[in-house]
C-alpha cells in the first residue's frame, strides 16, 4: 500500500491516491495530494474543498457534479456555479479530483 508523508506522519493512500482512512485527512494532506497532481491549491480550490467536506459531513455522501455545481452557484455566486469553472480548478473533474483532495470516499464509478 502506498503512503504519503504528511509532516512526518505516514498516511496510507490507495492505488488511485485516495486516503484509506478518511479520519487522517488534514489540510496539509490535501496540499500534498494536490502537489502530486502538480496543482497548487488557491482560495478558490479551498472554497470547493471546504464545501465538499461540509456537504459530506451533513449528508454522508459526496454530491453529484450537477448537485455540487448548483449548490456552489447558490453559495458562492453564479460565476462559480458552472462546470467550466469547476473543471478549470480541478482538471480531472470535481467528483474525482476534488473529492480526493477533500478526503471523501472514492466514487464507485457508478453511472
Amino acid at each position: 500500500m502506498a503512503s504519503i508523508d504528511v509532516n512526518g506522519k505516514s498516511v496510507e493512500v490507495d492505488e488511485e491516491g485516495y486516503l484509506v482512512n478518511l479520519s487522517e485527512w488534514t489540510q496539509d494532506a490535501a496540499k500534498i495530494l494536490s502537489a502530486q497532481d502538480e496543482l497548487e491549491l488557491t482560495d478558490n480550490h479551498w472554497e470547493v474543498i471546504n464545501f465538499l467536506r461540509e456537504y459530506y459531513d451533513e449528508y454522508q455522501i459526496a454530491p453529484a457534479v450537477r448537485v455540487l455545481t448548483k449548490a456552489i452557484g447558490k453559495k458562492l455566486g453564479p460565476e462559480k456555479g458552472n462546470s467550466k469553472y469547476l473543471y478549470e480548478l480541478f482538471p480531472y473533474g470535481p467528483a474525482k479530483q476534488a473529492c480526493r483532495f477533500a478526503g471523501l470516499p472514492k466514487p464507485t464509478g457508478c453511472v
Binding site: 451533513e58 449528508y59 454522508q60 455522501i61 454530491p63 453529484a64 448537485v67 448548483k70 449548490a71
Partner: peptide, 14 residues
Amino acid sequence: MKNFSPTYNALGDY
C-alpha cells in the same frame, strides 16, 4: 455501521 439516514436529507438537492 455507517448512519446513512442523513443522506435522505440530500434527496431534495437531487
